[in-house]
Every structure is written in structure tokens, then in C-alpha cells.
Nucleic acid binder design. Structure first.
Lengths: 340, 340
DNA sequence: CTTGGCACTCTGCCCGTGCGAGTGCCAACC
DNA sequence: GGTTGGCACTCGCACGGGCAGAGTGCCAAG
């Protein structure tokens, strides 16, 4: 059993060396840089076993070994300790995020911060609408038969929609409508908003029923369906760094996938606020993300993740560092959003 | 004088060939592909003159010629006709942008569209706040002494700020405040909002003066200063295409500059809605944009540009096409924003 | 002023070679 | 049985010479 343990130690050493040097690592170099207490020859034997088990591979016959996705997976799951951030880093987070003036500001600062901290591409999701609650609904009349509906959520998101009404509306009706809508929806989570509509229709004075129905329909249709989630992306410049080796073909498909947003949003949908989710290379089950790893976590209070944030980089990344950074930023963002 | 004309024709041919093939173009190829009516030898003579005048250059002895920034400039100013978009392209624009549901949707669709149309990086600026007018101001009470101020502009921008008040406020006061603010500011351009404040303070009932002063201060401070202009960027994947030749070093500094936004915003500040602005290579006077050209135009009605949009790409780009695309999209965005 | 001819200059590419890194295997050792 | 040093072997890669092609500048003739 002692062998097994040392073999894992060898794997850890390989991952660490490869991440920091970007060169396939050989048995001799390993023996020199880590005191594993055994000779290169022994390490070679261990490496042969690790390779057979699929944790490492060699790019070509006489080169050092490189971790496989499976190897990174084992490393992340069992071999890496969460590396706490330095005081300076924590302070940088605070300095960077304090003074944010609204939601968009918080998120765009976060994404910049995360990109800078990790030197990877950073991704931050807007608070999911469906999990947010209504703070206020505003109705603004644009024309006789055209209203603008403004939804303000407790997470600070503001969404607006134009509603064309079947008949002209007068100012009094607008005011009434506003009161009705707020009475019905304030404090209600958007995901539950649909259930309130029948009630609302019933209590509405008859002359407003039609209007309320039209407006509610727009509200539900466009705001409750989860499609409209948004992303802020930053640090793409980091892809143009050591890339040649990191991403086999080019960074193009990756950039395209990021801009597409859908792919990332799907990954994001799986996060919760308590554990950092790491998806490595092929695990992402998306062609463009092969060769890339995605480290993410939810932000918000523990009981409900408002949204997710994370970083995307080459599988050859410093997982403990990225996990720590992602978690720290998520915590801070969660606090900021909770108190505003 | 006939010589001069033909020389310009040669320059145009060089630009066109170089843009489409990405290879330095030689005299023989030129003679074959364009019927200039003269032999390669004559073209060589013209080329020698063009080179002496600084319009073209050769990467190394015995390679073809490549246009310089100055050469592109001449091409753009005098040698290129605006290439009208095809019907299919116009239709694509409509199809792509119709159905946009709010401002952000319009802009993010535009940026995607522009990136796709031009195969360059696209940049769209949010309507400048200072040039927008107030459509509605909303006051939402978050806590006894904390208000949220929501500004909705006639361009569809929605901005929010938290205001901490010196004393507790009751619901009645909030309603009064809302009425007062709207009466004072609706229809007023933000840039002129400052002038309305004295009036407002005077007409406000005494018990609200303090509140109004605090709120107005925040409004002016955070919303009127032009710093808070925002950009939407898309199509960065296009930088990772033929890049190796297009951008000498790497695309990294360019990506960084784009993310920084400041550089682009400064360039954007110079656009108006009537003419397409083209800045070529060194003209951008910014290190990261050396080797890049920036094609931009303002959108909005002719008399006031609400913001700008454009594309960034290698100096070796199809200027007529990009100029046409940028202008067409700007027109359409202008219409969309005007009617909502 | 234009044109064909010609010598010249470079770059890019192919290819063979040598070097170094790293491995796998084996026999000896603890 | 696991560990170790020795050793032959395999590749990839960097280096350098040689060759072909593209393009030029110049010149003399039309």
C-alpha cells in the first residue's frame, strides 16, 4: 500500500511541475525537484503504472509525461489542498469591489478582478431572474397604447419591456395598474409569479382586467423563462498568452463558445454556492471546451445561489489557486448583493 | 498627369489584392489580375515611385509590395467607392435586429451582427447618458433611510443608484419626491439637468428640501459625468483567425486595450452620425492599436449622435465593406432606438 | 514613356545530421 | 519483492546547406 501512496505523490508532483513549467516532466527532473526519497528508476516504474492506469501520458516516445484529464481529476479530488488566499489578495478583492455603484458595476468589477487574480478568462453570471424576487414594478406610459414595464429585483437587476395595449390607457389607469402590480408581486420570487396571476385578475377592478392580463402575460413570458440569463466575460486577453501549447488548434473555437454564452450558461446552471465545481477537459462534453477546464461556484447566500461565476482556462492550470480565487470572489459578491 | 492617375490605379490594385490574398503583391501578378493596360515593367516603375512617396513598402528585398498606413489612407479617402450592401445583407440586418426586446438586447444583437457581417471585432457604445433625456425617475424605498433611485432615459437606458438619506423617510415623502423629481426632470437632457436643480429646490415644499438636495446631488454626481459610458464588445474570436500575419506581435495587447474600454471610448467620442470615421494603424496613436484600424460611426438621428459603433481589425481590412456595414447597422440601430 | 531581357537578391523549404532528453529493460542489490 | 544503477534505444528538435521561385532594379531598345 505504501507504493500506492507514493505513486499518488508522484502524480501530484507531475501535475505541479507541469503546471508551473509547461514542459512534459521526466523522471530525473522529478527526483531532483521533489524529495520523494527514491531514485529516478523507481519513479519510472511508478510512471509506467500511472500511464497504464490512464493518469498520465507522453506526447511522444521519448518525452516526459503529461497529466491526462483523468490525472487532473484525481489531483483535484484527492491530491490538492485548498490554498488559502494571501492577505494581500484578500485586501485586493475588497479594494477592487468596494465602491461599486450598481449591479452591473459589481459584476464587471468582479470579472475583471477574477481575470487579474487567476490570469484566466473570467465569467460572471447575472443573478438568475427566476431565483430573484420582485422589489418593485414600475409602469411608464410611453404613448396612448404603449407602456413600458420596469422590473426591479431584490438582486439589483433591472429589466424593461415594452407592452402594447389593445386599447388606449389613461394616466389614472396607469397609476392603478402600478399599485395593483406592486401589491400582487412585490416580494414574490419570479419563479412563483405565475401562480399569483389568477388572484390578481380576480381582485382587479373590472375595467382593468384586460390591461392587467396583457401586462401580466408579457411579464411572465419575457421575464420568467430562464432563457434570458446574461453573462459578463473578461480577461480574454489571457487566452493569447502561452496559448500555442495550451490549446492545440487555436483559441478561436473557445472564444466563440464563450461569446455564444449558451454553453457557459448551461455549465453555470449546475453550480451551487457551497462547493466549487471543476470540469476538466473532455468532461465538459463540448467540442470547443475540450482542452479547457472550467472552475465555477455559485454566489449568494448558502440557501439560494443567485448565479454563478468562474474561470475558464487550459486544463494545465493551477487548480488550487483558481478554486480559491473563485470561491473568495463569489463570497464577496454574495455579501455585496445581500446588503444592497 | 495620366501617369499620376495610373499610379493611383496601381495603388488601388495593390490594396485590393493584398486585402484579399494577404500576400505581398508583385508586379507580374498585378498585371495579370487587373487590366491596367501596361506591362509589369511599367508597373514596377510606378511601384518604385509609390514606394518613394511612402504609400507602399516591401517587407524584404525581393518580395512584393504591401500598402503602408499612408497608402490605406489614400485608398480610403480617394480610391474607394462606398460599396452598397447586398439585399441579402440588408435583410439579414433586419432579421437579426427585429424582435429585440430592450436596449441591451438591441445592442448585443447589433454587436453580434456587426461581427458576423464584417468578420472583425465589433464594438457598440451604449447611448451616452449625457446626451439622453430623462423619461422617468423612480424612487424605491429600500429601508428607512435608504432609497433606490432609478433613472430611465428616452434611449432605453436604465440606471440605478442607492442613496442613503440623512434622516428617515416615510412613504408619503417618497411619493412626493417621485412626483417632484419627475415634474422637474422628465424630458430634460441629462447634460442640462444641473441647471434645473436650483428651481427644483425652490419649488420643493420646505420639509422635503433636504431630501431633494441629497437625491439631486447623487443624480448629478453619478449620472451626469460622462465617465460611465459603457461598451458592448463582440467577435473577438475573429482576432484568432489569420492573425499570425495580421498582428505582428500577438493579439494580446489589442484584446487588453479593448477590455480596457477607455481607449475605444475615447475614439468613439469623436464620431458623429453623418460620416464614417476611419482611423488607420498609427493614426490611432495608441501602442496596442498600432497595426489595427478602427472604423466607426455614430448612431441616432442626424442632429444628435446617441453613441457610436464600429469595428476593429487589422489595417489589412476591406475598408469599403466595413464602412458600408458599420453605416448600415448604425442607421438601423438609430431607427430602432428612435421609435421605442 | 514603355517594354522585354537579364542578372541579382532574398526568403522559404526540404532534407540530412547530430544532440539531448527520456524511456524501458535488465541484472544486481537490499 | 521492491529498488537501483547501467545501458541501449528512440525520437523530436534545432541547425545548416542547398535549391527553387518570386520579385526586383537596371538597361538598352522600341
Amino acid at each position: 500500500m505504501a507504493h500506492d501512496e507514493r505513486r499518488l505523490e508522484v502524480l501530484r508532483a507531475i501535475v505541479q511541475d507541469y503546471v508551473s513549467t509547461n514542459d512534459p516532466v521526466g523522471s530525473k527532473a522529478l527526483a531532483e525537484r521533489h524529495d520523494l526519497g527514491v531514485s529516478p528508476a523507481t519513479i519510472r516504474n511508478d510512471m509506467a503504472v500511472l500511464e497504464e492506469q490512464g493518469y498520465i501520458t507522453q506526447p511522444h516516445t521519448s518525452a516526459g509525461r503529461v497529466p491526462t484529464d483523468k490525472g487532473y481529476r484525481l489531483f483535484v479530488d484527492r491530491l490538492s489542498a485548498v490554498k488559502p488566499l494571501s492577505v494581500a489578495e484578500r485586501r485586493a478583492i475588497e479594494r477592487f469591489l468596494d465602491g461599486a455603484v450598481d449591479l452591473h458595476d459589481v459584476l464587471s468589477r468582479s470579472v475583471r478582478l477574477l481575470a487579474q487574480l487567476t490570469r484566466q478568462v473570467a465569467v460572471v453570471q447575472y443573478p438568475t431572474l427566476s431565483r430573484s424576487a420582485v422589489r418593485h414594478l414600475e409602469v411608464v406610459q410611453l404613448a396612448a397604447a404603449r407602456l413600458m414595464l420596469v422590473l426591479i429585483t431584490d438582486t439589483g437587476r433591472v429589466e424593461q419591456r415594452i407592452v402594447d395595449t389593445p386599447v388606449d390607457v389613461d394616466a389614472g389607469a396607469v397609476a392603478e395598474l402600478r399599485t395593483l402590480l406592486n401589491a400582487a408581486f412585490v416580494g414574490v420570487k419570479l419563479v412563483d409569479a405565475g401562480q399569483k396571476v389568477p388572484d390578481l385578475l380576480e381582485t382587479a377592478p373590472p375595467h382593468l382586467r384586460g390591461l392587467v392580463a396583457t401586462v401580466s402575460a408579457t411579464l411572465l413570458e419575457t421575464l420568467v423563462e430562464p432563457s434570458e440569463d446574461r453573462l459578463v466575460i473578461g480577461g480574454t486577453a489571457n487566452l493569447a498568452r502561452g496559448n500555442a501549447l495550451d490549446f492545440p488548434g487555436s483559441v478561436r473555437p473557445l472564444l466563440e463558445a464563450l461569446e455564444e454564452q449558451v454553453v457557459v450558461l448551461r455549465l453555470m446552471s449546475q453550480v451551487d454556492a457551497s462547493t466549487v465545481l471543476v470540469r476538466i477537459g473532455e468532461e465538459n462534453a463540448h467540442e470547443a471546451l475540450t482542452g479547457a477546464s472550467f472552475v465555477s461556484v455559485g454566489y449568494g447566500s448558502d440557501d439560494r445561489a443567485l448565479g454563478g461565476l468562474g474561470v475558464v482556462g487550459p486544463t494545465r492550470m493551477d487548480y488550487p489557486m483558481n478554486m480559491a480565487a473563485v470561491r473568495a470572489v463569489a463570497r464577496y459578491v454574495g455579501h455585496l448583493l445581500a446588503e444592497s
